[in-house]
Amino acid sequence: MSWTNGYGLRGGAAILGLIALASAPAFAHHGWSWTEDGFFELKGVIAEIYIGNPHATLDVDAEGEIWRVELAPPSRTIAAGFTEAVAKKGDEVTAIGNRSKDETEKRMKAVRIIVGGKTYDVYPDRVPSN
């Protein structure tokens, strides 16, 4: 009994702690902790568009590289006017927001999307002042 009550549980807790530590740097689309502070602009062509739960995303082809652009939850994205009716595969797009702190990761979270000359602020409170 002593080994299970002592080392067994403690060992389990240690393993879980290690899993949590190992995964921590990979924090991604919830919140902004995984993004750089400065603004980042991505120009490319829409390769894939998803407006839905749990949140909207765009895949953008920028000079042959596919970037994942995270948007807001669908309610917020649609409230900003950005729907499947205003953008489609093949459209030119500019995404302004914050890119991943991980330089090797082609991923960003957008606060503003520009398609067809129209601007959609999916996070109006975070857009750069201009």
Partner: peptide, 25 residues
């Protein structure tokens, strides 16, 4: 029986943790 119970704790907490991380990766 105790070893199985201890393993169960580790596995289910692992399931919980992995599940939560789906939203963050």
């Amino acid at each position: 029986l105790r070893a199985s119970a201890a393993l169960s704790l580790v596995l289910w907490l692992g399931v919980l943790l992995c599940g939560r991380f789906i939203g963050f990766l």
